[in-house]
Design a protein around this nucleic acid. Structure first.
Lengths: 249, 249
DNA sequence: GCCTATTAAATGTCTGACATTTTGGCAAGC
DNA sequence: GCTTGCCAAAATGTCAGACATTTAATAGGC
């Protein structure tokens, strides 16, 4: 696999890393494939070997590549990627051709985790957390009807869910807010046309119920409401069956 | 804060990174403190500037340090550490003076997450997963009574819980097995003397119930059993109150 | 007193040479 | 024919030194 067709870049090892990472995430190389050698990358992008090595170091640290002296650089399997690394999340956002299997895996995780986080949030939320949640919800409401503000609406959506993780007041859960952005963006892009009419209103009221439950400090209700928010998408992705009627957990 | 008292090292940027990271994780510097300059590190450890820069790059990538040209290197707040990065978990294992607050946070996460993971495992486990679980459980049983094999017992304990995450068959959950090792080791070290007599037998039967529930493909039972395994420690750490009698979730 | 150059100090970058590891081929020897 | 050993090629890893860039403090001019 060659380097043809990759976009230009304007300097900086970070941008080079981002560029290569997005090509990897988009599936341009298969696991086990050999990755181009350092000197070829230097030549192709007209950068110093330092830049290339720094960029490759990032890709190695996130589990995308494996390098061994003498042999070369090979692409690692998806199961080895550090999906929880903020760098990976950053690189993933906005990739149009993200592997649907990957989106499904990440959403399956969210569907299992976020209800629990909402429960914790209802137990631990303080004034500042409620303020964040309400601000994000107001933003979602304001941008719900305007089809031109879809990108902004997605940002508020991300902010809302991130606020839930923040409100859990747990160091580990808080870091998973990073995982949300690519997931939410991808889902919105893929399901934007499906139910343009009924979807948004419905989604908004469900989000509102989560906020309400957290404000009331009602853990069980928050857990249920959070599951309701994700349920529709979970059904669409085949993560749960349609018939599930809240099986008393 | 100087570098006095840090152990020697035998070469390799990885080991230097590990050394510095463990000093950071042990609280040798406070958040906001200035970290030694590159050239000082070179002089102190008698290594090239390349080695130092590579080591510092790792610490920066994991959120332990923040570097800016011209100003220098400063230590970041604990809330900025990438606790989910495998490197961090690796560095954390075996630190004697790990911040108790950090242990508590990580265990609180486990207490909220692991029951859900056990549920998923009961739904998705296959033959290989059961084999892993049973092998780890056999190892725990075999090393339970021998006080000399405490280290080995801890390894089997880690393997058992990791097997649960693996059995969930979710890419994201699977990566959190890394988080277990330091958590389990630290807990065993701190609670080894507390209930030497009654603890091990009890813990063993509870682990057995998780295994049994997953084998029976009983999600609700698996979730309950996993919570039971962690409950005793959760009470000790003050994460839940003693009175909790399985409040129907 | 405030603004502006200058300087010092730190991290960032480039370059070329060299070291190390891995792989494969080739040839001698049993 | 098969193994063994050695050498060469190719890749990543390391080093050393000079230079660039950014930041903050400082001295000077008005």
């Amino acid at each position: 696999m060659t380097l043809d067709g990759l976009p230009q870049h304007r300097g900086g090892a970070e941008e080079l890393a981002r560029l290569l990472a997005r090509a990897l995430l988009a599936g341009r190389w298969q696991p086990g494939d050999a990755f181009p050698r350092e000197l070829d990358l230097c030549a192709h992008f007209a950068v110093s070997r330092n830049q290339v090595r720094n960029a490759l170091a990032s890709l190695t640290a996130t589990g995308l590549l494996e390098r061994t002296a003498g042999r070369g650089t090979v692409v690692r399997a998806v199961s080895d990627w550090h999906l929880l690394d903020p760098l990976i999340s950053d690189w993933m956002t906005g990739i149009d051709s993200l592997d649907p299997k990957l989106v499904r895996e990440i959403f399956a995780f969210r569907y299992s985790a976020e209800p629990v986080v909402a429960r914790l949030a209802a137990e631990a939320a303080e004034a500042a957390d409620l303020e964040r949640l309400e601000a994000a919800f107001r933003g979602m409401t304001r941008t719900a009807t305007d089809p031109a503000a879809r990108g902004l609406h997605a940002e508020y959506d991300v902010a809302f869910h991130d606020a839930i993780y923040l409100a859990s007041h747990n160091l580990v859960w808080r870091q998973m807010g990073h995982l949300l952005r690519p997931s939410i963006i991808a889902l919105i892009q893929s399901s934007q046309a499906q139910r343009e009419h009924e979807g948004l209103d419905d989604s908004l009221t469900r989000h509102g119920r989560v906020l309400e439950a957290i404000r009331r400090r009602a853990p069980a209700a928050a857990e249920r409401a959070a599951r309701e928010v994700l349920l529709r998408t979970a059904i669409d992705l085949g993560i749960v069956e349609e018939a599930v009627a809240e099986p008393q957990h």
